[in-house]
Design a protein around this nucleic acid. Structure first.
Length: 499
RNA sequence: GCGCCUCUAGCUCAAUUUGGCAGAGCAACGGACUCUUAAUCCGCAGGUUCUGGGUUCGAGUCCCAGGGGGCGCACCA
């Protein structure tokens, strides 16, 4: 925000002018305000009260003053709590400390007690007999009609955004419902929720650059987890046949409209299942979340309808590439031909890429953003999937499938690699990649290999990007809109206030 | 990291395409008002136009540099 750079003494006249109404300061702030009725409940319970009607029933409400309409010996305040809004109707002859109440600031928290009435103009109100100031608000909270649009304030001072701007609280409430719904849906299928370490001695389970931290008492560096996978698989080996975790993972990457360095991942593993079983589970979770928060399985995204009703179409990577580009692409044609095709499609590929990496690059650049879907894209090349089991019938491919909706990858489904010998070979291939300069390649995890040697049954796994799912369901196009406190550059040093 | 855009009152925004006294609404402050709904009305304040430099008789406006912010690209989910 531009004015942060301005010397503070220039701001002082305005700072002084704001929030300086003195009267309410005489009120003592109580330690509690019990038994408040939520505004939404007041609205519902007295919906049949006629204009001008008096309910004869007194109750207490509490919330934040959003608007004040002062009218001499009358005053109206719009009070907002978590559930909704209700009007306070204050009369000089009825309301204790009436003159004090008129000096409330916008943003103040107030608790009030009085009879529920409906005004002559039809607004359901609490006719305030007694009231308490619960908190004073100081500082500019934006235009009362248009709110605050400065992204710098909205994101760095999210508490302001949450109450000053329409729809923001609702979006985060919806996010909470989505997460709760995912837990219910998984629980209904017998999945057990566990919590695994965030600090990893070796970052595994995905391809990404990790954050490094230091554990003093162990005199060694640890990594913030980039995935949940390896510990969850060890739970399966230990006998948790259906297990999941919803947790934060961390990847040392730039930010963007779809990227935040920490994000919330759901991973679930199901013994005796394969990637097709997991595709069904994905649909169940995604469509179930949509139904829980929107009432249906068709959502609107970017003004286009998106029907998430299961079952979704399944198509191979080769099929969808050909549909979108008109060009046939597959591993069988070999590295040289794949490179030639990539060039003709305008896709740049690194020197060290093998056939599978080139094919995946072509898919991600040309095809995925153009798949409205929803569709499950299946049969990925083996070289880009080091923890996935080889395809049962197609050499060079693995049993991996990604649910795509609105051109976005929402998650992953796998037939998990359960063979310790194969797994060791994949780790060694990754080590070679790493030696060749790929910072995202995996490190060999001997603990995990030893676990696999204890015996892992055929297992299906899924990953689901919770943030992206919420974006899809709320029709927002920046991940910051679904993260309460997104990663931001540290705030510019503000000159000290000298008053 | 590279490209494009942007920065005016506490907030939201104006300020003749092509330089000519920096404005409005809301908020704040003082006042009026017993049924308001972004209440209304009267009054009063509030500005280093992000910073620094340049061109010019004159710069919010044009040029250069720096800073904050946004959006694309790239790595990634």
């Amino acid at each position: 925000m531009a004015h942060l750079a301005r010397p503070s003494h220039r701001l002082r006249p305005q700072r002084r002018a704001r929030g300086e109404r003195g009267g309410v300061s005489g009120k003592e702030i109580p330690y509690r305000f019990a038994d408040a009725t939520p505004a939404a409940e007041v609205t519902a319970r007295f919906s049949h009260l006629e204009p001008g009607g008096e309910s004869g029933e007194s109750l207490r409400v509490a919330g934040r003053v959003m608007l004040l309409r002062l009218q001499g010996k009358l005053a109206f305040a719009t009070l907002r709590d978590w559930s909704g809004q209700v009007q306070l109707f204050c009369l000089a002859a009825v309301t204790e400390d009436f003159e004090e109440l008129k000096r409330a600031n916008l943003g103040d928290w107030i608790g009030a007690e009085g009879e529920v009435v409906r005004t002559k103009r039809g607004e359901l109100s609490v006719k305030v007999a007694r009231w308490s100031l619960l908190a004073r608000a100081r500082g500019g909270f934006g235009d009362k009609w248009r709110g605050i649009h400065d992204p710098e304030v909205r994101l760095r001072q999210r508490e302001v955004d949450l109450w000053a701007n329409e729809g923001v609280r609702e979006r985060f409430l919806l996010r909470s419902k989505v997460v709760a719904t995912l837990r219910q849906l998984l629980s209904a299928r017998g999945f057990v929720e566990v919590e695994t370490p965030v600090l990893h001695p070796i970052p595994g389970g995905g391809l990404a650059k990790p954050f490094i931290t230091h554990y003093n008492s162990m005199h060694s560096d640890f990594y913030l987890r980039i995935a949940l996978e390896l510990y969850l698989k060890r739970c399966v080996i230990g006998g948790f046949e259906r297990v999941y975790e919803i947790g934060r993972v961390f990847r040392n990457e730039g930010t963007g409209s779809k990227y935040n360095p920490e994000f919330t991942m759901l991973e679930a593993y199901q013994a005796y299942g394969d990637y097709l079983d997991m595709a069904e589970l994905q649909e169940y979770l995604i469509a179930g979340s949509a139904a829980a928060v929107t009432g249906g399985t068709t959502v609107t995204f970017e003004d286009r309808p998106l029907d998430l009703t299961p079952p979704w179409r399944r198509a191979t990577m080769s099929e969808v590439i050909e549909e979108v580009t008109g060009v046939e692409v597959n591993l069988e044609m070999g590295l040289a031909e794949l490179r030639r095709l990539a060039g003709s499609l305008g896709v740049e590929v690194a020197e060290r890429f093998d056939a599978g990496q080139v094919m995946t690059e072509i898919y991600e650049k040309t095809t995925e953003p153009n798949l409205w879907g929803p569709v499950h894209v299946m049969d990925y090349p083996e070289s880009v999937s080091p923890l996935t089991r080889k395809h049962r019938s197609k050499p060079g491919y693995v049993e991996r499938l990604t649910p795509i909706a609105a051109g976005r990858e929402l998650g992953e489904c796998y037939s998990e690699l359960v063979d310790p010998v194969d797994q060791r070979a994949r780790f060694e291939a990754q080590a070679a990649e790493r030696a060749a300069g790929d910072e995202e390649a995996m490190m060999t995890d001997e603990d995990f290999l030893r676990a696999l040697e204890r015996g892992m049954p055929p297992t299906g796994g899924i990953g689901l990007g919770v943030d992206r799912l919420v974006m899809l369901l709320t029709d927002v196009h920046h991940i910051r809109e679904v993260l309460l406190f997104p990663a931001l550059r540290p705030e510019a040093q503000r000159p000290p206030e000298d008053d």
